[in-house]
Design a protein around this nucleic acid. Structure first.
Lengths: 327, 327
DNA sequence: CAAGCTAATGTAAGTGCTTTCATCAATGGC
DNA sequence: GCCATTGATGAAAGCACTTACATTAGCTTG
């Protein structure tokens, strides 16, 4: 019942275990004929090298973790799922095993996980990072920058995303643009906010304090906020929402007021999540290539693991506005 | 630089490695005072037992895999992400490590992964299952039933879901109900289809061949299909869509035709995905507790791993209609 | 207080690979 | 044909734990 070991293969093929081992991990170092003998024996026995034993001997586990650090976020968040998907793809093709978890769950368990690297997505707590560094685990940050640490991080071009969105609205003739943001706690959202201020200035648009709105991060709060905004006597004709869920809220509110989109109200979202194409009108949104971000994370981790020292610290992935019918 | 081992702790605390080992894995078997000495030494050295070495010695890895088997599906599919989330939660709290991947990616890599169990979500290929069984890996199926195998599987109550949806429409006075399904290839969707036929019959509704529609699985196809349906002289007043994306397509089509919902057209979706609350009107949909499904999968796996023999083979999780404003 | 018993601890043999170093075979240059 | 070289293979020592079994310490009890 127990699995065949390298000894069984060694015996059956008549070569030493060293050769069997080499036949599997460095085939070019063993002669063609012997190699074939080994493979035959192996498949006859249905042998597969044990990853555990290998890890033990090599002192490497080929295991890395993807942790969602944003509070309350899970793999159900499309954005993080997208990054995860990218990481997963790359991890699989590089033959790394990927452990997926949230930072909270992860920290609840004392047991050492023997990972070689960790990709932290979202606002990673400094003490988590420090802990990993102490354990000599390589760390890469996704969608976050942690000032205190000198780590590779992969972020989207917030500034350009906001600029593209606003430029588009301007091109449609809008000059009065309201902004709706979820109450933000994360590095990235405040980054986006700064980008908004900067872009408004750059485009020469006046920034009316009253048209900067904050709400909770669910659609219903967005509806409320949007409603208040749209009820004003001098309501804005364009709204830039910090994410698609909020944008959907704005659209809902507009619909309920009987406004025609995009004529009477233009709406732009952010993230280009799957909901954009399900709304009517379809939502114009800033597309962020989160899969790509995930892939880059994995690339940085492997570079670190290979001992490379000149790993880029800050990689900004380009974004692009997907123009649809909401603006 | 290298991590401290059990020997270091043994030396520092003045007890044997066996005792150190026990102090960590069966604390009750070592005297209070010694235990404390061991812990002190361990924390002084910043020692953490190596999961690898432990796995090696114990012949257990505490590692299980969650594989998305549905073709083309990824962790970005909200439904699978939900199951994954449930599995993850439970896995973490039970101190199992979870490897997440798609079945395709998984099979591309020959290397043995040393997992003890696998949770296969969606239509798992028989040969994949057989392969796992051959390797003595415990298997549980999520959202799928594979007739050829005697495996625990966790599925949602398709029949009841459809029945609830249709009953609700009937309660609203509808008698002519059209159905829109994505071209289905999976076990579950055909199950849902059968449930639809059965429920229609049970409710005494006439089933007009022409009001059973199929389309591709994206929103745009649904729009096309719905448009054709709604253009008919004698158009139906209610549509039951097989999932929320299709339902969103129907709503889009209806909006474009200027129909008022739910008065002129009632729409019910399936899955209760996050989009339901973002649409206007909000989409009435059949809620499936996929997190729960994931948790149950994990429970079944652990039962199997503990050698229990009377593990339930077929667990049906209840569903419930979330009534909103689209119907 | 010795015997007997149990609880606590130690000894050492796995666990299945990798890898260093040594050995041996084969090849080529002269 | 001999010696230096290179390439292929083997022997054996880890890697960091667990655990069966042996041993010892600590109590109880008559």
């Amino acid at each position: 019942m127990s699995n065949p070991t390298i000894y069984d293969v060694s015996r059956l093929s008549g070569v030493s275990t060293a050769t069997v081992s080499r036949a599997f991990s460095e085939p070019e170092r063993v002669r063609e004929t012997t190699r074939r003998r080994v493979y035959e024996a192996a498949s006859a026995l249905n042998y597969q090298p044990s990853a555990i034993a290998r890890a033990m001997a090599r002192q490497r586990t080929d295991k890395i973790a993807f942790l969602i650090c944003k509070k309350g976020a899970t793999i159900l968040d499309e954005f993080y799922a997208g990054i995860c998907e990218g990481v997963m793809r790359r991890a699989n093709s590089l033959d790394y095993q990927l452990i997926v978890s949230t930072a909270e769950d992860w920290q609840r368990i004392p047991q050492s996980k023997q990972i070689e690297g960790a990709i932290l997505a979202g606002d990673a707590q400094p003490d988590l990072i420090a802990e990993f560094q102490r354990q000599n685990v390589k760390v890469v940050l996704a969608n976050h920058v942690s000032p205190g640490f000198d780590l590779p991080c992969i972020i989207a071009d917030e500034y350009d995303g906001v600029r593209q969105a606003l430029s588009h609205l301007v091109a449609q003739g809008h000059r009065q643009i309201a902004m709706l943001a979820g109450r933000f706690s994360s590095y990235i959202t405040s980054e986006r906010y700064n980008a908004f201020l900067a872009a408004m200035k750059e485009l020469g648009l006046s920034l009316d304090e009253s048209s900067i709105l904050m709400c909770e991060r669910d659609a219903e709060s967005a509806v409320q906020a949007a409603r208040a905004l749209l009820d004003r006597p001098n309501r804005p004709r364009a709204v830039f929402a910090f994410n698609d869920v909020l944008a959907a809220g704005v659209i809902k509110a507009a619909r309920r007021l009987g406004l025609r989109l995009p004529d009477e109200l233009a709406v732009v979202g952010y993230d280009d999540s799957s909901v954009c194409q399900l709304l009517e009108p379809e939502l114009t949104s800033v597309h962020v290539d989160c899969r790509r971000m995930g892939e880059l994370c994995m690339d940085r981790i492997t570079a670190l693991l290979h001992g490379e020292t000149d790993v880029p610290r800050r990689t900004v992935v380009p974004v692009s506005l997907r123009v649809r019918s909401s603006a």
